[in-house]
Computed example of a mutant assay.
Amino acid sequence: MFTFNDTARLQEAELIAELKAGNEAAFRMLVETYQSKVYNTALVIVQQPEEAEDIAQEVFVEVYQTVGQFRQEAKLTTWLYRITTSKALAHLRKRKARKRVSFLTSLFGVNNEVLYNPPDFQHPGVSLEQQEEMKTLFRAMDRLADTQKIAFTLHYLDELSHREIAQILQVSVSAVESLLHRAKQQLRKQLTPFYNERKKP
């Protein structure tokens, strides 16, 4: 009989075996363990709380439906991050498509304003004192290329190693290093005026 509690956690292989066997308690444990990480990662990428909630639900639905196909060539967390980032990017593409449609419609005189703007949201784990800085950072991140944004999020916010990110994005470690380097260059360029302004007396 499969049981668990807060102090006893299954080894990953055993958890995966229980998931593949369709054990609902194992699935609940997976959700309870990883739902915050999945939600927070999606939130940084899409920067819309409701959308991040939808993505998190989609991630766990996909895990439930496809865990039988998981070949365990990567860690369970790597697989979860891969699904999360993939779904977050899909949501961004749909949003950009809607934005283009709205813009084109407005050219023909229909009163249909473009609703997308850099978001104003409260990210979990960010203190009130840091909210202004984080909002500025997230707006700057929103201008990064998608792969740069994901690499930056996974490394600096989720604290994953270059190797782990390479496995998630299915690229080389050197490619991840390049993505992070370009992301930092772009962010430095965008954020320098903000910090210079804050330094003024």
Rank of each mutant, 00 (worst) to 15 (best):
Q65M: 15
V59S: 06
K87P: 09
V171G: 00
R82K: 14
E14W: 09
Q65P: 12
R95A: 13
L10K: 05
W79V: 04
N117Q: 14
L157S: 04
I45M: 11
P201Q: 10
K189A: 07
M29Q: 14
R98T: 10
D6G: 14
Q167L: 07
L92Q: 13
T84W: 00
E53Y: 06
R100W: 08
V110F: 10
K96P: 05
Y34A: 03
K200P: 04
T78H: 04
T147G: 01
D158P: 01
K199V: 04
L179N: 04
R71L: 13
Q190T: 07
T147H: 05
Q167I: 02
G68Q: 15
F27I: 01
T33R: 14
K99L: 07
L191F: 01
E58F: 06
P49F: 12
R82M: 08
V63Y: 05
D6E: 13
Q48L: 11
F121N: 03
M29W: 07
T41K: 04
F121W: 01
E197I: 00
E159K: 10
K96E: 14
I150V: 15
E50C: 05
E197G: 00
I83T: 12
T105P: 00
P119E: 10
D158T: 03
S127R: 10
T3N: 12
I165T: 01
T33I: 06
H181W: 08
N40D: 12
V44T: 07
V173A: 05
E159Q: 07
Q65R: 15
L115F: 06
V46A: 11
S161E: 05
A151K: 03
H91D: 13
E53H: 08
V176Y: 02
A42I: 12
K200E: 11
